[in-house]
Amino acid sequence: MTTHWKIASRAFASSCLCLALLQPVAAQRHDVDVAVVVHPDTPISNLSLSDVRKVFLGDRQYWSTNIPVVLLIRAPVARERDVVLKIIYQMSESQFKQYWIAKIFRAEAATAPKVVYSNDMANQLVTAIPGAIAFIDSKDVKPGSKVVRVDGRLPGEAGYPLR
């Protein structure tokens, strides 16, 4: 009985240790910042959060006279989309859909944001389509991508607003 108790105690201690070690990993998954990535030729490197909002609301549609903004947004359920809806649009999923229907048929925008189904796809499209802008989990941003500072901060820096 004593031996069994010792083994049980050791196993319990090991389990607690494992839990303690894994806890930060689980928490880190939810704290990863969402990077704002643009096409390399886009003539901006810093945007305020309200500028990002203006772009994603379709109120700013051109980076410059000849470079239209092309919005890329993850499909529903993706964490990046949740962050965008919560922080940028401050809308629910249905409000977001209604917003873009109204926007297009008010003749204020010609097209809605293009939907991307993975961060890989977002990475590929944002480097291939001139004027494209996308939100990508910062750990999935491809090296060489052009990451825009938001309110002067890059993902991972203290005070970065998109997480």
Binding site: K139, S145, L154
Partner: peptide, 12 residues
């Protein structure tokens, strides 16, 4: 040409 901006998060 691709303009590189550093991303502090090491994973990135």
């Amino acid at each position: 040409a691709v303009v590189t901006a550093p991303v502090p998060a090491p994973a990135a």
